[in-house]
Design a protein around this nucleic acid. Structure first.
Ligand SMILES: [Mn+2]
Ligand SMILES: [Mn+2]
Ligand SMILES: [Mn+2]
Ligand SMILES: [Mn+2]
Lengths: 218, 218
DNA sequence: ATTAATTTTTAGGCATACCAAAAATAATAA
DNA sequence: TTATTATTTTTGGTATGCCTAAAAATTAAT
């Protein structure tokens, strides 16, 4: 049974479980999927029976090898579609996520591989997230969150972890797009808000926003 | 409620009701959708309540204005995707129908219009079926079925009404692709099978196949 | 006009995927 | 450690969309 529901659960468990080491709580899933916790319990019991997850009652859930495999496949589809929508069809990075949420469920890997080929087998999507290859292999990176950046250093924006239209439009406004170079001017000790320079202009970044911007030292 | 199920019923009723004049029988729907007649009865009662169809018990069903509108929108999506898959992504005309059956349900008209624009707003899909424009307007044509063709006349292949891979591959084998010119050599009086010339080669067409090939006089 | 065949509808069920409310567990604070 | 809060699970329902078997209605054949 590989329903859209199953695909969405596995993808979400994958996304919530950093490095696939951490166990995912029911509550986290309920929040992300916008579903009642009672329904999550039910679903996890079924996914456990299907051998896609190891669900330990009242403790947490992690993916099995089969679960990871399917999750990677869906994540690949999602990110390839996002990239295609931006690069080939002219959509903005702030509008592709919702569309990809639907397109990712179209069951045809030849289609995905064709799109990937046209795109030159990209390794990162428009939000800087790594795209698994057809075999499920993912490019490793040494990116950090902007909230972990040090004063006076120079960085390049590599990605975001919040895919909401509101956040991405806010970034666009301040030219904080992928590839942009930024210099940390000051970090406010009191609340960790950051003042940085981007395109010669000062931008004030809240700690919350800094958590969602991924950068690399340059 | 615009579920995938509703979309599939409306699209199928539209496709079965030539010119939107004929009433569609439950049986026809059951056959096309590969669903039990009892389920069809149920579904039609609901669609009637939703005001998408006028369903007269034990008589037949036709689309309301709202129903036609939605059907045309789905048909447009389906045919635009088929065209895009063939023209831009290199798929064969025999493999795109099943993929489009899924893609047609992705709810984003900006996406469809973008694809249409890239394709130059095509008016016919890879099987010769007319593509409704964004407003639902359809190009009229004076095509006939090959089964209605007359001996000694010349025709151009304009489309097919059977979208199965088997049939399309059979046509490919005899070079009976869209745009191909054919001459009717003889029509067997006994069973109406046709012998035609295509690319200087004789091809024997069964009455069943002739029903599914659409041509235009040249 | 009957009979026979086909189609449609009704009736009773089943699986999936969700929910709200209450009970049980676990985590945190006092 | 006990009390409070938060999370998880159980229980009992709902809506959708499908099914089979049997009854009713329609259509076709004799
Ligand atoms: Mn999804
Ligand atoms: Mn992304
Ligand atoms: Mn469909
Ligand atoms: Mn077509």
């Amino acid at each position: 049974m590989r329903t859209e529901t199953v695909e969405n659960y596995l993808k979400t468990i994958y996304n919530l479980s950093a490095d696939n080491t951490a166990v995912v709580a029911n509550q986290q899933l309920a929040d992300k999927l916008d579903i009642n916790p009672a329904s999550v319990t039910e679903a996890l019991r079924k996914l456990h029976e299907l051998k896609y997850v190891i669900y330990e009652k009242s403790y947490g859930t992690r993916l099995t090898t089969a679960g990871v495999k399917m999750a990677l496949n869906i994540v690949r589809r999602h990110r390839i579609w996002e990239t295609y929508l931006v690069k080939e069809l002219g959509f903005g990075w702030d509008e592709v996520h919702v569309i990809a949420e639907e397109l990712e469920h179209v069951k045809n890997d030849k289609l995905i591989n064709k799109l990937a080929e046209i795109l030159g087998n990209p390794v990162f999507d428009p939000h800087g997230d790594p795209i698994p290859d057809a075999k499920g292999k993912i490019q490793k990176s040494n990116f950090i969150k902007l909230s972990e950046a040090k004063s006076k250093n120079n960085y390049k924006v590599m990605g975001v972890t919040d895919h909401s239209t509101a956040f991405l439009k806010y970034l666009d406004k301040h030219h904080l797009v992928i590839g942009a170079g930024v210099t940390i001017k000051t970090i406010e000790e009191y609340d960790n808000s950051i003042v940085l320079i981007c395109q010669k202009k000062e931008v004030n970044i809240s700690p919350k926003a800094a958590e969602c911007i991924i950068v690399q030292t340059i």
